[in-house]
Nucleic acid binder design. Structure first.
Lengths: 236, 236
DNA sequence: GAGTGGTCTAGACCACCCT
DNA sequence: GGGTGGTCTAGACCACTCG
């Protein structure tokens, strides 16, 4: 484990365990340097990570302070699929509708930059949050990256499977959001009415190598989903 | 101007100007060190910033590569209010409905952590994107931070005014998103129908000092708004 | 002015990719 | 094994805040 990651996790854990309020001042650099026995740069790096994650904010000449969101029950949009959902604990479950290996439609082929004959795993599932319908999700996984998938795996967290069993390194993602009226099929699946509002999302996930491997389309149940998003200083 | 910021901007400019495609490899560290005449750490810092912003991705042992979004016409959710909207150029204009100094409602008071007698500027405006109705926005600015505001200023970019005229340093923000049906008032304002879908957003903006100064509620026109969001490796 | 964070350097060494 | 990025250090110096 890298030193700066260990320090970052340690600080975050303290904030949560001691339930420190927004604005609480953390120890200064020299104290942290002492406590962790590392150089100043390593502390700087650890704090930068926490700042980007929205856990703290730093004020030059003044100190490092706790940042905590005020509202609960919101899904963090940034935290990639199921990692680190530890703290704000929702129970996410899935009902798998389809797992099949197919030749993908053209738009999927383009998004995943596939060769014309390359197949994909097509997974369709309903996801539940605390027993309530959260969304309908349709994903396409590139065969060359994800050589195997079945209904059991799709019933749990696919991303944990990719990371732990397949040892894949998920790097970054693009998300596109749009609000629309539900069509008949989606309304039925989500147990809502035709023309009810819905958030439609399109996502593209990449490995750390830059290879896109998962293209997903999701429709969210508007009554059971709300989203949370933090921005930090983009010059750090 | 800080060295690493200058380098980051320079690299981003090159990518845009030369219209480099996703996956294009950038010069290696030694070349950049030569080109900019700085130490390795400064290059690392500049590249980290660009990585967080979704402009590049770095692959250990391999190189630094261009990352570019595939779709256009989406509003970047992360980039705080009007800064750096330079590249994906939308024309944003505003029709001001209200600018008044008032004693705020209770929930605003709580969000901005105000003293009971402190007043706020209440600004209500319709915002247009390329001449089309984008959203209805209702903002509350803390008097102690924003001592003056008028209709003319509210007609332009309030955030530019805060930054340039008032010399405020905007630090970070929390956003909460929810999809709902439009109520009668909002439907009329946005020229939509009752019960049409809409994205409702609540935002809280903080100075770099950690002081919250702007609480805003926004309703987006579902046909004229779509959103874009990039995640990067959160361990950097 | 004392205290606190922010920038930048030079250089050692590590980890990973590719051929 | 050669190339490339990633981590970490020690220390100089800068910039901001606050009493």
């Amino acid at each position: 484990m890298l030193k700066y990651n260990e320090i970052a996790l340690n600080i975050e854990k303290k904030i949560v365990q001691q339930d420190l309020k927004q604005g609480t001042k953390l120890p200064n650099f020299n104290e942290m340097i002492q406590e962790y026995g590392v150089s100043k740069s390593t502390i700087v790096k650890a704090l930068t990570i926490l700042e980007q994650r929205g856990v703290i904010y730093q004020v030059q000449g003044s100190g490092v302070f706790v940042r905590r969101k005020r509202k609960y029950g919101y899904i963090n949009v940034i935290e990639n699929q199921g990692f680190t959902t530890d703290l704000d604990d929702f129970t996410i479950t899935s009902q798998v509708l389809t797992v099949e290996k197919i030749l993908p439609p053209k738009n999927v082929q383009e998004n995943l930059a596939l060769k014309t004959e390359e197949q994909v795993f097509h997974v369709k599932r309903i996801r539940f949050i605390n027993e309530q319908i959260l969304c309908l999700e349709e994903s396409y996984f590139c065969e060359s990256v994800v050589p195997y998938l079945n209904e059991e795996i799709a019933g749990g967290s696919i991303f944990h499977y990719l990371r732990d069993a397949l040892k894949l390194n998920i790097g970054f993602s693009d998300k596109y959001l749009k609000v629309k009226k539900l069509n008949a099929e989606h309304a039925q699946t989500l147990k809502l009415q035709l023309d009810d509002p819905a958030m439609y999302s399109e996502e593209l996930f990449y490995l750390t190598s830059g290879k896109p491997f998962d293209y997903s389309k999701t429709v969210y149940h508007y009554q059971h989903s709300q989203f949370f998003l933090q921005s930090s200083n983009l010059n750090n």
